[in-house]
Design a binder for these strands. Structure first.
Lengths: 106, 106
DNA sequence: TTGATATTTAACCATTTGGTTGACGTTTTG
DNA sequence: CAAAACGTCAACCAAATGGTTAAATATCAA
């Protein structure tokens, strides 16, 4: 019986899934388009999206034959709060965020 | 080749390991004492501590026959930044975000 | 020195994970 | 209608994960 926190952290533990979330930061996307930049089958991406969905990190809505994926950043809140309890982290460092984005997108 | 972020998030994905970190929030502990509240062998706890150590979330120092475990909250910083960024900039598109960054950094 | 305490290592096991391919059901398009 | 596009499902596979027990290695105490 996984808790929500288990699901969120293990979803985030995979670099492909983090890359997907980063892509969705920009805009909602169809499954096929999400899969495009990855050297991996569509079925594999579909599985990753299911995992992200079960963790609550994205939602998926089917319109016609296209299934749209949408980031649900609220799901990160509990996990973020959990982590902050461990440290006196300063407010988000934007330089660091930019550096991470670059890294994730490369 | 795991990145640091992979290691941190997958370390956090296990409830036993999160519980260990919570215990260490209070004080440094010996391995045996860490293991005490868990219904699990000492060897299993030892493995969990190794995983936490490789993620940089704890450090271990041996004094005599006792190995002390110490929380290293700095390791959470990058992961925390990564997560907070999603929560904070949910609706942003990258163009707007970059414009915001330019303004912020000038 | 002998024995107890602290911890890791090795071998093993079941389950989960992350990937593949191919077949399948829908929806759109020609 | 027939064909293409979108996405999932099922079966399979190798590797990783999380646990076990038993043996091994240090260190401390009597």
């Amino acid at each position: 019986m996984d808790t929500r926190l288990d699901l969120v952290f293990s979803a985030l533990a995979d670099p492909t899934r983090r890359a997907i979330l980063t892509m969705l930061l920009e805009d909602d996307m169809a499954v096929t388009d999400v899969a495009l930049p990855f050297d991996m089958s569509l079925a594999a991406i579909s599985k990753h999206l299911t995992i992200l969905g079960k963790a609550g990190l994205i939602s998926q809505e089917k319109r016609g034959r296209v299934k749209w994926c949408k980031l649900e950043p609220d799901a990160l809140r509990d996990a973020s709060i959990w982590m902050q309890s461990f440290g006196q982290f300063e407010a988000v460092n934007l330089d660091a965020f930019e550096a991470f984005l670059d890294q994730e997108l490369s």
